[in-house]
Design a protein around this nucleic acid. Sequence first.
DNA 1: TTGAATACATAAGAATCTAATGTATATTTG
DNA 2: CAAATATACATTAGATTCTTATGTATTCAA
Lengths: 119, 119
Amino acid sequence: MYICLMYSSELIKGTLKTIVLNLLKEEGRMYGYEITQRVKVLTEDKIQITEGALYPTLHALEKNGELETEKEYIGKRVRKYYRLTDQGLETANDRVSEFSDFVNTMKFLLDLEPRLGNA
Amino acid sequence: MYICLMYSSELIKGTLKTIVLNLLKEEGRMYGYEITQRVKVLTEDKIQITEGALYPTLHALEKNGELETEKEYIGKRVRKYYRLTDQGLETANDRVSEFSDFVNTMKFLLDLEPRLGNA
DNA sequence: TTGAATACATAAGAATCTAATGTATATTTG
DNA sequence: CAAATATACATTAGATTCTTATGTATTCAA
């Protein structure tokens, strides 16, 4: 019996943007460190986003116009909150749809279940 | 409405080994070019494995003892058939289980459906 | 007061893929 | 029958994305 404590990084690759965009869609706004902790808790430690992976991704999404930021000071410590732009919301929806479609195709390919109708 | 002709390469990354190992598990033996064509047909062109991605992966899996090969000549043209070793079969099963588990976690995380019991 | 947690950031290197290129044989089509 | 397409292997430069490590600084708990 196969028990998985944490997914291979290989498997998670490429889903980081999808996860981040969707979390921001649900939560409204979040800051980086908060995202890493939220994902860790929600996935029972199976997906652990490192800061070295997250921050460059957030910066890239912001540069690309999907996210906008506002800084807040908690005492002397700065916190950078991210929220979706209109374009970011579109991208979030597209990414989740694409992932859902992809999973459907993969399940068919891996013979896990018959293909559902999503042509 | 979101229509997807082909998944972003980002999303597919990391699933190549899983796909290859599982196909070989189902088919017994296949050669490289055959794998690319089979995946293309089975996924209705949504996943297209390039040879530049496939051959290095096959070589790595062979080097790692997951696959073994036999050459066959079709006329003058060589064909390299791959099949799973015992270890490769184990890996294939693990990879598919891991993917299935991962999808379950992702669906919960993306709020697509409640988490199923696979702790 | 010292270690852990919070919170940001970057950077070198690894892994994996894309796109291009190369070689050669076989088949189809005009 | 010549030319284009398909079959079948392979490698390589470059891009992307991630891991691991490091750096800075504040806040909180022991």
